[in-house]
């Protein structure tokens, strides 16, 4: 048995009663399957860094691959609890990244000529994924305000050989370069309810006050991120949480606030997902939020995620 599984064997995830009650409301009959799934540690995954090596070459070298993603050939499940101890990791041939966190960049689909903003980029998993999708061309502004996390971002950029990135340290609510970006990724700071399987202490400080506070921050970040887009530009808003206040609530607010904004439906073949919910605790969201993508941990035996694709339609 892997060391991290042994460590977790006799422990249980911290799940506050209020959180469980909300999940019951959100998931109904499926709540027990959801809660049962949270007791199981998350399967580790890697992403092949195609800036440095091809998928087929790396496949021949790594002894711990445990299944390629059906929906993204660069992604693999692994059966190794210390993937950082291999020479191939030192060489920057792969990056340890959870499965669903590879989806937002796939939805955004950055191209080699694009100018991209990753507003809350650290530690850089999605930034470096986008860089390889862009063949290390074009430009990505990888921004984050937290200095400690910037170190991890820069270290990943260097190890993975990313040259199309410009790192900045600006409060994302105040970042101003209006109308400059073809694409924007806002993987917003969130309560992390979808990552309990990765860190069983994740919800130790969970509270409704925290969710309300994060929701205010997310609105402000998302409004600013949208204004950074060129007309016709695309923004992906994502979180690794399930709370509607941080997800559909934000998207609904944006749709109401910006009349030029459109929400595009998203679907990834091979990933089980649900549509966004249109009401929660008496609040009715814009009905278009059904086009958002909601992923629960028990859907694909992964972490949970929420993704929305927004398009600036003004000319």
């Amino acid at each position: 048995m892997f060391a991290y599984l042994k460590d977790m064997k006799n422990k249980q995830p911290i799940l506050p009663a209020a959180f469980k009650a909300r999940c019951s409301k959100l998931l109904g009959d499926e709540n027990s399957a959801f809660l049962k799934c949270l007791q199981r540690p998350l399967r580790k995954c890697i992403r092949v860094n195609t800036i440095k090596i091809s998928v087929s070459e790396l496949e021949k070298r790594l002894p711990f691959l445990d299944g390629q993603f059906e929906w993204y050939p660069e992604g693999f499940f692994i059966n190794e609890d210390k993937p950082g101890k291999y020479l191939e990791h030192f060489l920057g041939y792969y990056h340890v990244q959870s499965a669903m966190s590879m989806v937002p960049a796939l939805i955004l689909d950055p191209k080699p000529q694009d100018i991209v903003l990753d507003l809350t980029a650290a530690p850089g998993s999605k930034t470096t994924q986008m860089a390889q999708m862009m063949e290390n061309k074009g430009a990505i502004v990888a921004n984050d305000v937290r200095i400690e996390r910037l170190k991890a971002l820069k270290s990943n950029i260097e190890r993975l050989g990313v040259v199309n990135t410009l790192v900045t340290r600006v409060d994302g609510r105040k970042f101003r370069l209006g109308g400059s970006f073809d694409k924007v990724l806002l993987d917003a700071p969130c309560s992390g309810e979808g990552t309990v399987r990765k860190n069983w202490n994740m919800l130790s400080r969970w509270s409704m006050e925290q969710i309300r506070s994060l929701s205010r921050l997310q609105k402000s970040l998302a409004e600013n991120a949208l204004l950074s887009l060129k007309p016709g530009g695309v923004m992906v808003y994502s979180t690794c949480t399930h709370s509607p206040e941080e997800n559909e609530g934000i998207v609904s607010h944006l749709l109401e606030r910006f009349e030029w904004l459109e929400l595009e439906g998203i679907k990834v073949e091979g990933i089980k997902s649900r549509e966004g919910i249109t009401q929660w605790e008496g609040r009715h969201f814009d009905r278009r939020v059904r086009d958002c993508m909601r992923i629960y941990p028990h859907d694909n035996d992964t972490e949970g995620f929420f993704i929305a694709k927004l398009v600036r339609r003004d000319v």
Binding site: V141, I157, L166, T168, S180
Partner: peptide
């Protein structure tokens, strides 16, 4: 982009 940006960058490339 670094030349157009008014923020100090923490590294380009």
């Amino acid at each position: 982009l670094a030349n157009r940006l008014r923020y100090r960058n923490e590294g380009v490339g």
